[in-house]
Design a protein around this nucleic acid. Structure first.
Length: 438
RNA sequence: GCGGUCGUGGCGAAGCUGGUUAACGCAUCGGGUUGUGGUUCCGACAUUCGCGGGUUCGAGCCCCGUCGAUCGCCCCA
C-alpha cells in the first residue's frame, strides 16, 4: 500500500502557521540587519566529512545523520546542523581574508536528523543561526547571546533562563579530562552504559548524564572551572561581566557541556521554563569554537555561533500564549445582486486591487445574505453594494462595516471615499497596511 | 534505539461486554417569499472509522502487522 502521508518527523506548513513563520523570518531579517549580520546560504547537503570529523563523537554525527551515496562513491550527508557548512564556506572562499573581521553571518536553514520524533523535535527542523568568525573577544560572545535574546524577547518570550558555562581552551580541557578520568576510574563500572562509552570518548559528557546524576562520584566530580588556566578563567569572567553589565541575567551551569565536541570556551543554552515544552526546552544554544576552522582546513581562527530551532521556538511561543499573527481582514468586499452587477463587481475588484486595497468579491454569485455573511467572515472594513439601480445611475452604495454608516456616492468618488475611511482615520498609526496608492 | 498512551467527517469529540441508521458541538453550505449580514429557526453534510490482513454469521469496537502522533528515556534546536 502506497504511503501518502508526510514522512515521519516532517510536516506541512500552511494556513495560520505559515503566517507565523513569515513573521519570525521577517523579524530575523530586521534584527540581524540592525546587528550587522549578512545572510549566508550553504547547500542542504555536504560531503559527509564536513560533518563527521575524526575528533567529533557526538550522537548527532554518529547516529543521526542522513547519509547517502551520490551514485558514485561520494558519500554525502544532509546537513544536521548549520555551523559546519558555513565554516567550510568560510575556508573554501578564504573569507577570512576580507578586510573587516569578524565576519558576521546569519542563516535560516533546514536541518536533518534521524531521531525519534517528539514534541519540539523533528526529523526536519529549521534553524535560525548566526556565526561570528575570525576574531575572539568576550564582547562578541556577549553580542551573540544578546542578539538571540533580543530576538526571542521581541517575539514576546519572557519565561527564559540563560545557562552559560565555559569549557576553557584546549590545554584546560586536556587538563580536566585527565582529572575526570582519574576521578571516575574506580567508579566507572557503576555507571550506565552511555557513561562508560563517554568515559573513553569524551569524559566531559559524563556530567550530562541524567541517569547517574545522583551518584556520589558524580557529586564529587572535579569542577571544570578548577582546571581552567588563568587565560580561560579571565575570558569567561569577562563574558559574564559584559553580559551582566548589559542587563542579561545568566545562570552559570557547570554541568552544561553540550553535544557537539567542537566547542571551546563559552557554551550557552537558553531554555524556556514554560509548561508545555515537552522534554525539549532549549530554544537556542551554541558556543565558541577555537578549532573548527582549522579542522576544516583553514587557519587558526576562532568563531562563535548559536542555533535556534524555529519549530521549538513556536512551541515556546504557544506555551506562553503568545499570538504572533493578528487577523487582518479585507479592506473591501464587493457585494453584487445580479448577473450584470456581478460582472461589474469583478472589474471593480480588480481596480481596487490595483489601487492597493485588499479586495474580494463573490465568485459564486450567491445570495445577498450569503455574500453578507462573507463580508463578516472576512472582516471586510467596507462593503460595496452593486445592483441594477446603482448601475443605471453610475452610483455605488458604500457601507462602512466598522461604523455601520451607509452612503450612496457617484462612481468617481469611490477612491476618495475609501481613502477617507481606510487611511485618514489612521494617520497616527505607524503600522498601517502600507497601501501604495499615491 | 528502548518503554507507555493514542489514531472516528475540515476541526473538537461520543460510540456500552463486537450486531448492523456511526451521537453531539464548531465550521461550512442552502432556506425562512425575490436588494442588507453578524441573533434565531429549519434543513444538508463520514458507502465509513490511519492503512493492510486475520478471527466471526457479523468489527470502529477482538488479534497480528504496518504507518503516524504523543509522553518519558537518550540526544538536541
Amino acid at each position: 500500500m502506497a504511503n501518502y502521508q508526510v514522512p515521519r518527523g516532517t510536516q506541512d506548513v500552511y494556513g495560520e502557521d505559515i503566517k507565523k513563520w513569515h513573521k519570525i523570518e521577517q523579524l530575523i531579517r530586521e534584527i540581524t540587519t540592525v546587528y550587522g549580520y549578512d545572510e549566508i546560504r550553504t547547500p542542504e547537503f555536504e560531503h559527509t566529512e564536513v560533518f563527521a570529523r575524526d575528533n567529533d563523537s557526538s550522537d548527532v554525527v554518529n547516529k543521526e545523520m542522513y547519509t547517502f551515496s551520490d551514485r558514485g562513491d561520494r558519500s554525502l550527508t544532509l546537513k544536521p546542523e548549520g555551523t559546519a557548512g558555513i565554516i567550510r564556506a568560510f575556508v573554501e572562499h578564504k573569507l577570512y581574508a576580507l578586510p573587516d573581521m569578524p565576519l558576521k553571518y546569519y542563516y535560516i536553514s533546514p536541518a536533518f536528523r534521524y531521531e525519534r520524533p517528539q514534541k519540539g523535535r523533528m526529523r526536519i527542523h529549521h534553524q535560525f543561526g548566526v556565526e561570528v568568525m575570525g576574531e575572539k573577544s568576550p564582547y562578541i560572545d556577549a553580542e551573540v547571546i544578546g542578539l538571540g535574546l533580543t530576538f526571542v524577547r521581541t517575539l514576546g518570550l519572557s519565561n527564559l533562563k540563560v545557562l552559560i558555562n565555559t569549557l576553557g581552551d584546549a590545554e584546560s580541557r586536556a587538563n580536566y579530562r585527565e582529572k575526570m578520568k582519574a576521578h571516575f576510574k574506580p567508579h566507572i563500572h557503576e555507571f550506565c552504559g552511555d557513561c562508560q562509552r563517554r568515559y573513553e570518548q569524551n569524559p566531559l559528557r559524563i556530567l550530562d548524564c541524567k541517569v547517574d546524576q545522583d551518584k556520589q562520584a558524580m557529586v564529587d566530580a572535579p569542577k571544570l572551572y578548577d582546571s581552567l588556566n588563568q587565560e580561560s578563567k579571565d575570558y569567561f569572567d569577562s563574558v559574564i561581566k559584559i553580559l551582566k553589565d548589559s542587563g542579561v541575567e545568566v545562570e552559570i551551569s557547570d554541568r552544561l557541556v553540550r553535544g557537539f565536541d567542537y566547542y571551546t570556551h563559552t557554551v550557552f543554552e537558553i531554555v524556556s521554563e514554560s509548561e508545555g515544552m515537552g522534554s525539549q526546552s532549549t530554544i537556542f544554544g551554541g558556543g565558541r569554537y577555537d578549532n573548527l576552522v582549522k579542522d576544516l582546513g583553514g587557519p587558526e581562527l576562532s568563531g562563535i555561533g548559536f542555533g535556534m530551532g524555529i519549530e521549538r521556538l513556536l512551541v515556546g511561543l504557544e506555551a506562553e500564549g503568545i499570538n504572533l499573527v493578528e487577523e487582518d481582514g479585507l479592506d473591501v468586499y464587493c457585494v453584487s445582486l445580479d448577473e450584470m452587477a456581478h460582472d461589474y463587481a469583478y472589474h471593480l475588484t480588480q481596480v481596487l486591487r490595483l489601487n492597493g486595497y485588499k479586495t474580494d468579491y463573490d465568485i459564486y454569485q450567491r445570495s445577498f445574505k450569503a455574500q453578507f455573511k462573507t463580508v463578516d467572515r472576512k472582516k471586510a472594513k467596507v462593503a460595496i453594494l452593486l445592483g441594477q439601480d446603482e448601475l443605471k445611475n453610475n452610483q455605488l452604495i458604500l457601507k462602512n462595516q466598522v461604523t455601520s454608516e451607509q452612503i450612496t456616492i457617484k462612481e468617481d468618488e469611490l477612491m476618495h471615499q475609501l481613502d477617507h475611511w481606510l487611511n485618514e482615520d489612521h494617520v497616527c498609526d505607524h503600522d498601517h497596511g502600507g497601501h501604495s496608492h499615491e
